[in-house]
């Protein structure tokens, strides 16, 4: 099974029925699989905070959801994570492409990469870093953990995990 299929299978296993996405080149494959999944309603967002609002609504409607986005979005969504997701105690798995790590061809991406983990730590968001493909073995447990504790949880996936750019 491809890593993209494995991610979608773990989403479905954890009863995630709505996924919102803001694209990244690295995430193109998994976004395509999400879109094709008959078990998941895929709703592309125009901005990540909008997507988090949609996920908050879905949670209140009794359905599990997730967001797929790039790490630059952490800069965009600090207020939403704090005053919506965390303030109302809502679960939110965030599958994040960790741009700006080893192998990154675009220098500007490094500018946000150096802040990504620090911001997540400052926000007290449980953070997992997938560097090798086998790290994805933990995804099922991470999703379970997220819905157990009603917190946003970050899964950073770097270029090595996606096997290059």
């Amino acid at each position: 099974m491809s890593v993209n299929d494995r991610i979608v299978a773990d989403f479905v296993k954890n009863k995630i029925e709505l996924v919102t996405t803001v694209p990244c080149k690295q995430l193109a494959g998994v976004i395509e699989k999400i879109d094709q999944s008959p078990d998941i309603y895929h709703i592309p967002s125009n901005k990540e905070d909008e997507g988090m609002g949609i996920c908050a609504g879905a949670f209140m409607g009794g359905k599990r959801s997730a967001i797929i986005m790039q790490n630059t979005a952490i800069g965009v969504t600090v207020n939403t994570l704090v005053t919506l997701t965390q303030y109302y105690r809502m679960p939110l798995p965030m599958l994040i492409s960790y741009r700006g790590e080893l192998g990154e061809p675009v220098a500007c991406q490094v500018e946000m990469a150096v802040h990504t983990k620090a911001l997540l730590a400052q926000l007290h968001i449980p953070t997992y870093h997938f560097h090798k493909e086998q790290d994805a073995d933990e995804l099922d447990a991470i999703l379970n953990h997220c819905f157990m504790c009603n917190k946003p949880v970050a899964i950073l996936t770097d270029a090595s995990f996606w096997k290059g750019y």
């Binding site: 909008e50 997507g51 949609i54 996920c55 609504g57 879905a58 209140m60 919506l84």
Partner: peptide, 17 residues
Amino acid sequence: GTMGLSSSIGLGLALVQ
């Protein structure tokens, strides 16, 4: 909190029930 997201929260809520 979160100015601007009323419509997004409402849409997410409406879509799933």
